[in-house]
Amino acid sequence: MREQSLAGQAAFAPANTADIADAMIVSSGLRVEVDRRRGRGAGLNPTGRFEPLQRETVDDGWQTWEELPPFKTEVQVEKPRTAITRNESPDLSFDRSINPYRGCEHGCIYCFARPTHAYMGLSAGLDFETKLFAKPDAAKLLERELAKPGYKVRVIAIGTNTDPYQPIEKEWRIMRGILEVLNKANHPVSIVTKSAMILRDLDILQEMAGKNLVRVGISVTTLDRKLARTMEPRAATPPRRLETIHTLAEAGIQTAVMAAPLIPALNDHELERILESAKAAGAAEASYVILRLPLEVSPLFRDWLLQHYPDRYRHVMSLVRSMRGGKDYDAEFGKRMKGAGPYAWQIARRFEMAARRFGLTRRSVPLRDDLFVPPDGSGVQLSLL
């Protein structure tokens, strides 16, 4: 094991030294052996950006690689004080959300939530996919928050950071508990997922849909099985996601397709096919998001691109930077989701035309917030006044 200061390391190099950073990523030995990360998305596991030292495993010639175990999924319990997270972002359609899990086993290489693992002292790379945190008390905390005097009802968004229906939900069932609380309280909710596991909760979702309290967005990134397998290794296959859209729509649930993220010169040519297929499956509306590469996501994505699509690497990154003011990412509100410049404009026009052609421009019916019935308040701290 070798340690060195993180200052100036390639993983966090500024955009104008990106080519040098690319070369360092490939040659520095940071890439984890294939056998140890089989079935995972990231090829790197860089030290978290808040850590004072970077640790790098180096082969000393004594075949020590064989002694290192493969990355396995580990789940720790997290005990937050609240279930609802608030935000004031002007380019988000919601002001509150719930995240049942921290980290995501789906392993999507492009996931913009990866950098949040640094707050736990962990890597945005393989740690994000394998060292997960579950919040088993989320439903109880939510019930208490909804019961507080003065609580104002707004749509709660779930799945905006990590997927609430990632594989470990099958065992932990935290999302189902949350839905049970929301359904009982007649509270509106919006869900985003790329997992077919959401159909497990079809009984609750159907009941909520009958009161116009739920809408679901299914993320369809590509229709190419090979690309999906490498880019989103533990997520549902593209056909399975389309089947999920169909089942949800047939059950009377407001269902949308999210073509996200669109990656130039990699999957953006599929935009029209994705929308057409989703419409045929039953989707009523659509949206899209351009690839976002904040913080550690940039070197992780670039390394993945060099591994799987080296012939497209320069072209993809050139187009990405053309939409981000010459950088890998621009976090400016109003631009971070859609990008800027000629190529971003072209994608926006294509989306508008395709959505109109396939009848995906209909706005969803606003979810009701007038049916809310506060929980009985058991467990809520009483006022001292």
Rank of each mutant, 00 (worst) to 15 (best):
F94S: 02
R102C: 01
V297H: 02
A147W: 06
Q307G: 09
E285N: 13
Y110E: 03
L266V: 14
Y288H: 10
K79G: 02
T64F: 03
H315I: 10
D370R: 08
E272H: 14
G217T: 10
R31G: 10
I245T: 03
S27Y: 03
P164W: 00
D60C: 13
D201H: 08
L275M: 12
G48H: 00
P52E: 13
E3R: 10
K170H: 12
A280N: 09
P90M: 12
R36S: 09
S322I: 04
G252N: 09
V316G: 05
A185H: 01
A235Y: 00
A344R: 02
I174V: 15
Q166S: 04
L223G: 04
W172I: 13
G334A: 14
I253D: 06
L179G: 01
A15V: 01
K148Q: 15
K148L: 12
G341A: 07
R96W: 00
C111A: 06
A235Q: 06
R86V: 04
H269A: 15
P90F: 11
Q76D: 14
L6R: 15
R368L: 07
A284F: 05
T64N: 12
E270C: 12
G103N: 08
L146M: 13
N161M: 09
L68Y: 07
A259H: 03
N161K: 08
L300Q: 06
I191C: 05
A157S: 14
L266K: 03
A209E: 09
D91R: 10
S123K: 02
Q54F: 12
V75F: 05
Y151T: 11
A118S: 13
G39Y: 13
M1Y: 09
V297P: 00
P264K: 07
V32W: 00
G359M: 10
E276L: 14
G341W: 03
H117R: 09
G282Y: 13
W172V: 13
R362Y: 02
L306N: 12
Q76E: 15
R176M: 05
S277N: 07
R37K: 14
E88F: 12
F128H: 14
A113C: 03
A278P: 05
E296F: 02
D19W: 06
F112G: 01
Y343T: 02
Q307H: 15
L223M: 14
Q4H: 11
F301P: 00
T64A: 15
L199P: 01
L300I: 14
A249V: 05
A236P: 04
V214R: 10
K131E: 13
Q63H: 08
